[in-house]
Design a protein around this nucleic acid. Structure first.
Length: 488
RNA sequence: CGGGGAGUGGCGUAGCUCGGAAGCGCACCUGGCUGGGGGCCAGGGGGUCGCGGGUUCAAAUCCCGCCUCCCCGACCA
């Protein structure tokens, strides 16, 4: 079988090249691969079935993880009374600019005596409600989660990455001790890392946020950050430890074993439909999407090739003879019987990032084989139909691994060690990626980085690292080893 | 929210300066030839020109207001 050359691989012609204009490429891929659209209501998106199916795969994976460790799903109200929202001072200060309010309701559009906030996140409604269910240390920990959407009145939107409504999970947990809550936040961060690396095939930096990037109301925020193919970092999940901040604001307390009243320690954590955008930006190429098999709505697409009714029947019978085996093996596959040319179908499914394609024609039926093409290399390989399901299973596992290795290589190639602010400025003027450096821990120095280096921020503090060297801004001994990047 | 640009069949656009019967490409429908990387021929359907108001005998075109989208900034999962 003929080997494809680099030039011949430029098959999908309807997408702007990534290298020409990444933002444009991203928007075109999201829309043409039928992931999502704008809705006509400013900043509000329509997630289409192909995009939602990816989110569903993420939901299933994460839901299994948290159920396994004893979390339960709840449904809390969409609207939050003003009075509740206002109780945690730092929290409301952080969120006030982006909260949407319901001030009128009913047939006569009567003004409400108490405006209701559309939840931007649910700490302030879950707090006052959950306290009813917490009396004693025996009621703890209370491990809640909800799958919902929230509204944040963003000024500038991008499909999946920043829209005024987005879908996510928000976990909220309440504990009898600080250590237990801290451990919870750590454990969830581990889950997020697993979702990113094992499911989305995106390697991440995991660490703590600097004070400037900490969630409003949190004691500390943990994050996983991935690198997109344009060199910008993307926050892919955050897990917050609140200490007793929210418990104090909402009087969420319990009687301990000594029958003393004590405030709970709490956490919250979330991942969102933004992760679908991460898949696009971390793996995509000039032909469109490349979807990791574990997330892919369609893992294997079968393109039948025929010229008349007779050959169509022949190919159909051939495919029918083994496609049931794929179903039995749990391989998500689809046969594309649309009345289109094979070339159209190839381009269509490449744009949609389906990992494996089987071209099946009359010749293949005669030889009891299929032609397999993978989305990463586009190499064509003939596979016998005997044992096909097992072979595809292992090909998909292999694809998942190769995709992760490719992303890891990209991250490694784009990770640097820098010592001074001048180096940082010079570096980010030319390139993107992650830059490791030392930081003294002062917020003034952190602000200097952002202003002087054009939006470069501290993405993570590596708490496990041995710290040496000096602060990139002031030159005093560094207290933290931090990663810097420009981020979405 | 500031600065810039744009809204014309599903998508991309011409026409607007200088008012006078809405055109093109793709997509779609029908038929035929085709079919292993986007093929060809013939015929056909579809548009309140973003919305509202104004000027005019006459508005896609000129004027006013609004809405939406795109690009650049400050804020963000």
């Amino acid at each position: 079988m003929k080997q494809e050359t680099e030039e011949q691989q430029d098959f999908v012609k309807e997408v702007t090249k990534m290298s020409d204009d990444f933002d444009r490429w991203y928007t075109e891929v999201v829309r043409k691969a039928e992931l999502a659209d704008w809705s006509g209501v400013r900043g509000m998106m329509v997630v289409r079935p192909y995009g939602w199916a990816m989110w569903e795969a993420i939901m299933r994976a994460f839901d299994d993880m948290i159920k396994e460790s004893g979390h339960e799903n709840w449904a809390f109200p969409l609207l939050i009374p003003r009075e509740f929202l206002m109780k945690e001072a730092e929290h409301i200060e952080g969120f006030a600019p982006e909260v949407a309010w319901v001030t009128r309701a009913g047939g006569g559009m009567e003004e409400l005596e108490e405006p209701l906030a559309v939840r931007p996140t649910s700490e302030t409604i879950i707090g006052p409600l959950i306290k009813r269910y917490i009396q004693s240390h025996r009621d703890l920990p209370k491990l809640t989660n909800q799958w919902n959407s929230v509204v944040r009145w963003e000024m500038r939107s991008r499909l999946f990455l920043r829209s005024r409504e987005f879908w996510w999970q928000e976990g909220h947990t309440f504990h009898a001790s600080a250590q237990e809550a801290i451990d919870e936040a750590d454990m969830i961060l581990g889950y997020y890392r697993a979702i990113a690396e094992e499911w989305l095939a995106v390697p991440v930096l995991a660490g703590r946020k600097s004070p400037a990037e900490t969630f409003p109301g949190a004691v500390h925020t943990l994050t996983v950050e991935g690198l997109m193919r344009d060199g910008l970092a993307l926050q892919m999940g955050t897990s917050h430890y609140f200490g007793q901040n929210f418990a104090r604001a909402y009087d969420i307390s319990f009687s301990n074993k000594e029958n003393e009243r004590e405030l709970c320690y709490s956490t919250s954590w979330g991942i969102s439909t933004r992760l679908v955008g991460a898949i696009v930006m971390a793996h995509g190429d000039d032909s469109g999407l490349i979807v990791p098999p574990k997330i892919a709505p369609v893992q294997v697409v079968i393109v039948p090739i025929f010229r008349d009714d007779e050959s169509q029947q022949k190919v159909r019978r051939f495919i029918d003879s083994w496609s049931g085996e794929l179903k039995g093996a749990g391989i998500r596959h689809r046969v594309d019987w649309r009345d289109e040319r094979p070339g159209d179908k190839y381009a269509h499914w490449e744009l949609k990032g389906v990992p494996l394609r089987l071209n099946v024609g009359s010749r293949d039926a005669d030889a009891a084989q299929v032609e397999m093409v993978d989305r990463l290399t586009r190499k064509k390989v003939a596979l016998p139909v005997a044992g096909l399901a097992d072979r595809l299973r292992s090909e998909l596992d292999d694809f998942q691994r190769r995709l992760y290795e490719r992303a890891t290589a990209f991250q490694n190639e784009n990770t640097y060690e820098l010592r001074t602010l001048d180096e940082v400025i010079a570096h980010f003027r030319q390139k993107g990626g992650f830059a490791w450096t030392g930081w003294c821990g002062d917020t003034d120095e952190e602000a200097r980085i952002k202003t002087d280096a054009g939006g470069v921020t501290i993405r993570t503090i590596d708490e496990s690292a041995k710290v040496s060297g000096s602060c990139l801004v002031c030159g005093r001994p560094a207290k933290f080893r931090v990663s810097l990047a420009k981020a979405y």
